[in-house]
Design a protein around this nucleic acid. Structure first.
Length: 264
DNA sequence: ATGGTCGTTACACGA
């Protein structure tokens, strides 16, 4: 089962390129972030025509997440439990494959948190605390569980092109990394680095020619339960869709690329 | 270098 995550930075602006990638990559499950649309505006039929079940937690202008699956999905929740939030940043559902074990999949768009310190950073840390508590609850079930998405966290210095320059940024500050490591310390594994071995980036800013200079960040992650970690046999970062010179020519890329894992 | 980020929105903000 191939499971992917992609921060698309507007479903409306990105739709042709997203559909091209779906046709090529054929994920069984995909979580999308930064839809920037309300539920009713999500182009569900384009995905349903391709065999996907569509679940959306949308929001106008900002945020918005979706869970798409070729397999049936049960028990969908929107938002992090026990966390009052006006922003649409989390969706979770149980994927029921034709055969084998069900997998509980969360799709995450973590708050950016800049400028830090400040109220936006406080919100990020509160969000992370609530999500950590929820992850702990889910792990108690000892069933296959993962949370994929844009964590807006650079866990390690090799995940940023200029660690010194980014030391005070909300994505890389010690408190941010400590909060992320609390998630790992629950018993979750960051699945992609264990498979890829070499450092990689998943985001390049639109500004300053970041793509051409390879000034990237590694901020899109898969945190998986032990039951999933045992089953990860492949992982990938689809960088080709980020290059404005490739793909659909006149269609502009997202600043993030798709990241995926394949389970046995 | 003649540019200089993008998307949504509305005359600015978030990333």
């Amino acid at each position: 089962m191939k499971i992917a995550t992609w921060n698309v930075n507007s479903i409306k602006a990105r739709k042709p390129r997203i559909l091209d990638w779906f046709d090529e990559a054929q994920p069984d499950v995909c979580v999308l972030q930064e839809l920037k649309c309300v539920d009713e505006a999500f182009p569900a039929s384009d995905f349903e025509d391709r065999g996907y079940n569509v679940h959306v937690h949308g929001q106008k202008t900002y945020n918005g997440v979706a869970l798409l699956s070729k397999h049936p999905v049960e028990d969908v929740i929107r938002g992090v439990p026990n966390f009052e939030d006006e922003q649409s940043r989390y969706i979770e559902g149980t994927i029921i494959p034709d055969e084998g074990e069900a997998v509980r999949v969360g799709g995450l768009y973590m708050p950016n948190g800049n400028p830090a310190p400040g109220p936006k950073y406080d919100y990020k840390l509160r969000f992370m605390e609530a999500l950590t508590a929820h992850m702990a609850d889910r792990l108690q079930a000892e069933e296959p569980f993962l949370v994929a998405g844009d964590y807006n966290i650079i866990p390690e210095a090799h995940g940023v092109y200029d660690p010194i320059g980014w030391k005070d940024d909300a994505l890389f500050r010690p408190e941010s990394r400590a909060a992320y490591h609390k998630m790992l310390n629950l018993g979750l594994t960051s699945a992609v680095p264990t498979l890829l071995k070499e450092p990689y980036y998943t985001f390049w800013d639109y500004q300053g020619g970041a793509w051409k200079k390879n000034n990237g960040l590694c901020i899109d992650h898969f945190l998986v339960s032990p039951e999933v970690a045992d089953r990860v046999e492949e992982a990938g970062v689809d960088m080709d869709v980020r290059d404005p010179e490739t793909g659909n020519g006149d269609v502009k890329p997202s600043d993030h690329v798709p990241v995926w894992i394949a389970l046995t």
